[in-house]
C-alpha cells in the first residue's frame, strides 16, 4: 500500500484492524440485542395482549418503566449495578443486557399494537371452524401481526444500531470508540467522524432496504 503519511487514507489504513474490530463489535452487539429483544419482546407483547391480569399488569409496568428511562441510564445502571452486586460481566455484556431490556419493551409494545390491530372477525372466523386459542394465534393472528409489526420493528432495530454507540461510554470499543481512538492518535477529527457517520448510514440504509423488500413480498396481506 503506497499512501502518503499524514493523509486520512493512510491513517485509516493504519487503524484498519481496530476500526474493523469496532465495526464487528457494533454489528455483533446490535444483532445480539435485536435477537434477544425480539424473542423476549414477542413473548412480553403476547402477555401484554392476552396474559392473565396480574401478568399483564407486570408486563405493562415493565414496558412503561423501560420506555421512560434513557437508554444511557439503563446502560450505566446495569454496568455499575452488576459490578457492585459482584456479578462479573464484561462491559460488552452489560451493554447488551441493557440494550436488550430497552429493545424488549419496544418490541413488546409493537407486537401488542400489531396483534390488537387484527380485526376481531379473524379470531371469530377461526373459532367458528373450531380452532383453539393457540391454533388461532399461530395460524391466523400472528402471521398477519408479524407483517404489521415489521415497520415499527425496523425502527426499533435502527434505534438499537444507533444505541450501540452508547456502549462506548462504558468502555466497549465499538465503531464510535474505535474511531475516537484513531482520532486520539492522528487528530483527524472531521475525517474520522465523517467516515463513521457514513458507515452508520450505510448499515441503517441496508436494514431499511431489506425491510422494504420484505414488505413488498407481503403485499398480498391487504384487507
Amino acid at each position: 500500500m503506497e499512501l502518503e503519511r499524514g493523509t486520512f487514507l493512510y491513517e485509516a489504513w493504519t487503524a484498519r484492524w481496530s476500526l474493523l474490530e469496532g465495526l464487528m463489535v457494533t454489528i455483533s452487539s446490535s444483532v445480539m440485542t435485536i435477537i434477544i429483544g425480539t424473542v423476549l419482546g414477542f413473548a412480553v407483547g403476547l402477555v401484554l395482549t392476552y396474559g392473565m391480569l396480574p401478568f399483564r399488569i407486570l408486563a405493562r409496568l415493565y414496558v412503561d418503566i423501560m420506555r421512560g428511562i434513557p437508554v444511557l441510564v439503563l446502560i450505566l445502571f446495569t454496568y455499575y449495578g452488576l459490578a457492585i452486586l459482584k456479578i462479573g460481566v464484561k462491559p460488552y455484556w452489560a451493554g447488551v443486557i441493557a440494550l436488550s431490556l430497552f429493545c424488549i419493551s419496544h418490541v413488546a409494545e409493537n407486537v401488542r399494537g400489531a396483534v390488537q390491530s387484527i380485526p376481531q372477525g379473524q379470531h371469530e372466523a377461526g373459532m367458528a371452524i373450531g380452532m383453539r386459542f393457540f391454533q388461532r394465534l399461530r395460524y391466523i393472528i400472528l402471521p398477519q401481526a408479524v407483517r404489521r409489526a415489521l415497520p415499527p420493528w425496523v425502527n426499533t432495530a435502527l434505534e438499537i444500531v444507533k444505541g450501540t454507540t452508547l456502549l462506548s461510554v462504558i468502555g466497549v470499543v465499538e465503531l464510535l470508540l474505535a474511531n475516537q481512538q484513531a482520532i486520539a492518535r492522528n487528530y483527524m477529527i472531521l475525517q474520522f467522524y465523517m467516515a463513521a457517520t457514513i458507515v452508520y448510514i450505510i448499515i441503517n440504509f441496508s436494514i431499511a432496504q431489506a425491510a422494504a423488500a420484505l414488505e413488498r413480498r407481503y403485499a398480498y396481506l391487504r384487507y
Binding site: 372477525g121 371469530e124 373459532m127 367458528a128 371452524i129 391454533q135
Partner: peptide, 30 residues
C-alpha cells in the same frame, strides 16, 4: 364449535392465505 359452521356478513377470510388454504386450515388443524 367445529360441529356448527358459521358464515359472517363481513366474510372474514384469512387474508394471508389462498382460497384453498383458507378452506384447508380447519381440515388439517382441527
Amino acid at each position: 364449535r367445529a360441529k356448527i359452521g358459521m358464515v359472517f356478513q363481513s366474510f372474514n377470510l384469512f387474508p394471508h392465505m389462498t382460497a384453498e388454504a383458507n378452506v384447508m386450515l380447519g381440515l388439517t388443524k382441527v
